[in-house]
């Protein structure tokens, strides 16, 4: 579905605008492909420092061990000079922010790294950029149809675009759950991922609370206000959803082991 909707939009643009549509499609497609390759070659930022094996042996060895279990080539690991706890992956690389090391212990950091290894194993690091660039293409084509298309084409194009956003959100969430599932299979202590997510949720809630109230306390802030977020087009599941699924998968895994 995630690929079918852009295909339908492309067909509609060509049908509606003829040669101009084909030209628009070729130029925006070309520009996005160029952007894809340019972005790919510039992803190693100045604030990203490669992990030194000697300095952080536990991290290097831990990630190598988890990669072997996941049957993938060990990724290159970078540390990001950012005090906000964060982790992400691209290509065969994992980035962990220094803030992560302040709020999680070694087990928690390896759990977060295992989630990123899950993304690499599931080929999300290749898929996500494609989904993102397809989104840009959908935006461009929908914009063109809204400006130049017939009334029927305008309505259809808008419906296709909204359907794509909803589908993209569902797709991305599914991949997050799938990465968690892959992590649970390779971790020494599968529930360490649950504990790490609980700590990260606590951090986010507390930080939001400190920002709003300006009064730091030991207690976590109230849960994030769900009304301010659009569940329909969110690309990340909430911590609560992920924790609930982790508990479910852990039970299934335990059952399978027994």
């Amino acid at each position: 579905m995630i690929y079918l909707l852009p295909a339908l939009e492309i067909l509609m643009v060509i049908h509606e605008m003829g040669r101009f549509g084909a030209l628009l499609l070729a130029s925006s497609g070309g520009a996005l492909t160029l952007m894809y390759f340019l972005a790919g070659s510039r992803k190693i930022g100045k604030r990203m420092i490669p992990v030194d094996r000697e300095e952080m042996e536990w991290l290097h060895e831990g990630i190598t061990r988890l990669s072997k279990r996941a049957k993938i080539k060990p990724p290159k690991v970078y540390l990001l000079d950012d005090y906000i706890p964060n982790a992400y992956s691209f290509g065969n690389n994992i980035v962990l922010s220094l803030g992560l090391f302040e709020v999680l212990d070694e087990e928690g950091i390896l759990a977060v790294a295992a989630h990123e290894l899950g993304h690499i194993k599931n080929r999300d690091t290749r898929l996500f950029p494609i989904v993102m660039y397809l989104r840009f293409l959908m935006m461009t084509l929908t914009g063109a149809v809204l400006l130049l298309g017939s009334p029927l084409a305008k309505v259809s194009s808008l419906i296709l675009y909204i359907a794509y956003e909803v589908e993209r959100s569902k797709f991305m969430k599914k991949r997050e759950f799938k990465a968690d599932r892959a992590a649970l299979k390779i971790l020494d202590v599968p529930l360490s991922l649950k504990r790490a997510l609980e700590e990260l949720k606590y951090y986010e809630d507390l930080r939001a609370s400190v920002k709003v109230n300006g009064i730091p306390s030991i207690e976590p802030g109230i849960d994030r206000d769900e009304r301010t977020r659009s569940r329909l087009i969110d690309t990340h599941p909430s911590y609560e959803e992920r924790i609930a699924r982790i508990l479910m998968y852990s039970n299934i895994l335990n059952f399978q082991i027994k």
């Binding site: 952080m56 302040e102 606590y202 951090y203 507390l206 730091p216």
Partner: peptide
């Protein structure tokens, strides 16, 4: 919790009372 201390120390940095630098020592970068 660790998170509370990290948030408060970074808040003190924003207030100008503390300064944060990256150190490469035993146990890695921090």
């Amino acid at each position: 919790r660790r998170s509370t201390v990290s948030i408060l120390m970074n808040r003190l940095c924003e207030k100008g009372l503390l300064e944060r630098t990256v150190d490469r020592g035993r146990g890695g970068m921090r």
